[in-house]
Design a protein around this nucleic acid. Structure first.
Length: 454
RNA sequence: GUGGUCGUAGCUCAGCUGGUAGAGCUCCAGAUUGUGGUUCUGGCUGUCGUGGGUUCGAGCCCCAUCGAUCACCCCA
């Protein structure tokens, strides 16, 4: 390999970018902990069987499998090789796979540790996940998810709090957004009323595309999937709904009077809306989106999706309630609900909106200019003190030209430069320059610490 | 997995119906021996993504391959 490269859809994160990414992770982590969620980490790789079958057929194809070590063809039957049976083959040569999301490993963890866990169990998890998707805008093969889930509680209070977390984080990050909410029970109710309960998934995939391909597009898609006109007419009834969240919910309630499940979904959403309205949100707004479907198969109740306002970008967060995720692993009757922040997309949105606060350019707050051996040691004593005072500081490691040293500070985005030569040393002071305003003053060390901290 | 567009200096790109590569920015040095970002002057930079083919001759045409990017599917 002559030119080094990295795998498709992966990225290096430079120090400048990492400072900003860590800022985002920090805000999210802080919010999770503020709401009582505890950290959890699971391995990058899981057993293949843990992951397969949880994300639908499409999802299974996007799971990265890890080739077994050693002579992995030894155990493979000749007929498997002969018939080129891919499913059979991958099963016998890859027993591990990279995690595809954080929810399924979490469910696995809960089942494995059900006797040690105090329910309701609230955990958050900030780790990368991998998908063998073809990369495109805002879409990577390795990306971070920041999940918070609570299992072992049916209460809708959890949904309300999760909406508050969305609002708190996105308000702090200066990314005003619309939190779209729907309920799988309503979608089921619609399918039921339309007489296509067994094909709910297909129906939701079609209506999910409404804002992309329009009413006619959705109808065409439904026809393409060979739904009959009666069913399509019922679904059409959704498109005409206008008004605020409450009045649309009422309209849906009327439409779904024949479906018990559908009514339950309406009631759940009404309760969530009422509470959220009473408590109020900061910079986000919550909106009923009856076409919201979301791909993940395991959602059974509320579903969330968050879109940043004023930016062309797919959803930046998602989430929902799943009644029986742990059931697949043998633990029945544990309901959970969770949300996920797409940190990579949030980063892209914040870059586009230019809303990173100052101080996310550099971690170093002040650079000391190096004049030579004698001044160097004097500065290092000062450094010891101001570092103790909680300031990130460094000294240029050699007595290079001033131009070069100042340029280094400028390139790194360091906000202050301290110059200490014989003059300052004799007065016991430092010359502190604010790199943004260009102001420079000779002041005491204590005053310098004050100036940098403020 | 399917389809479109594009690969030329560190970056953004120009390069005529085929005649052996250029601009801006960046970078480096100096103007300024205790001051960056602005200004001026000078300088460095290329297996034209890779491999093959056509041709007297290929950055340009043909094939393959790799990568990037966009859309579809799906999704954070």
């Amino acid at each position: 390999m002559s030119q080094p490269s990295i795998p498709k859809g992966t990225r290096d994160f430079s120090p400048e970018i990492m400072v900003k990414r860590n800022y985002i992770f920090g805000i999210i982590r802080q919010a999770f902990e503020r709401f009582g969620y505890m950290p959890l980490e699971t391995p990058s790789m899981e057993n293949v069987e843990t992951l397969t079958g949880k994300y639908g057929d499409e999802g299974d194809k996007l799971i990265f499998r890890i080739l077994d070590s050693g002579d992995y063809l030894k155990e493979v039957g000749d007929d498997t090789l002969q018939t080129r049976n891919l499913n059979q083959l991958t099963k016998s040569i890859a027993e591990k796979a990279l995690r595809y999301d954080l929810t399924v490993p979490f469910a696995r963890y809960v089942v494995m540790n059900q006797n040690k866990i105090a329910f309701p169990f609230k955990r958050y998890q900030i780790q990368p996940v991998w998908r063998a998707d073809r990369p495109q805008k805002g879409r990577y093969r390795e990306f971070y998810q920041c999940d918070a889930d609570v299992v072992g509680s049916d209460s809708l209070l959890n949904e309300v709090e999760l909406v508050q977390i969305f609002d708190e984080v996105l308000t702090k990050l200066k990314v005003p957004s619309t939190i779209k909410i729907n309920n799988r029970k309503i979608l089921y109710g619609i399918a039921e009323v339309a007489g296509i309960a067994d094909r709910m998934m297909e129906m939701t995939i079609a209506i999910d595309k409404l804002d992309k391909i329009g009413e006619d597009g959705v109808i065409q898609e439904l026809r393409g999937r060979e739904f009959n006109d009666d069913s399509i007419n019922v679904i059409k009834g959704l498109f005409g709904m206008t008004g605020d969240n409450e009045s649309r919910l009422n309209a849906i309630s009327v439409m779904l009077r024949g479906s018990e499940t559908g009514q339950k979904g309406v009631d759940e959403l009404k309760s969530i809306f009422k509470d959220v309205q009473t408590l109020g949100l900061n910079d986000c707004e919550i909106e009923l989106d009856i076409t919201l479907a979301r791909g993940l198969n395991y959602y059974t109740g509320a579903i969330f999706e968050v879109k940043a306002k004023n930016v062309q970008m797919g959803s930046i967060c998602g989430g929902g309630r799943y009644d029986d995720l742990t059931g697949i692993f043998g633990l029945k009757g544990v309901s959970g609900v969770g949300i996920s922040f797409g940190a990579d997309r949030i980063f892209d949105v914040m870059s586009e909106l230019n809303v990173f606060p100052s101080g996310t350019d550099s971690t170093t707050q002040v650079l000391f200019v190096n004049f030579g051996k004698e001044e160097e040691l004097y500065c290092m004593k000062l450094l010891r003190d101001i570092r103790k005072a909680g300031i990130n500081a460094e000294i240029f490691p050699e007595a290079a030209k001033m131009k070069k040293q100042f340029k280094y500070a400028d390139d790194k985005g360091i906000p202050f430069v301290a110059t200490v030569g014989t003059d300052e040393m004799s007065k016991g002071q430092v010359s502190l320059k604010n790199m943004k305003t260009g102001d420079q003053k000779m002041i005491s060390v204590d005053d310098m610490i004050e100036a940098i901290k403020s």
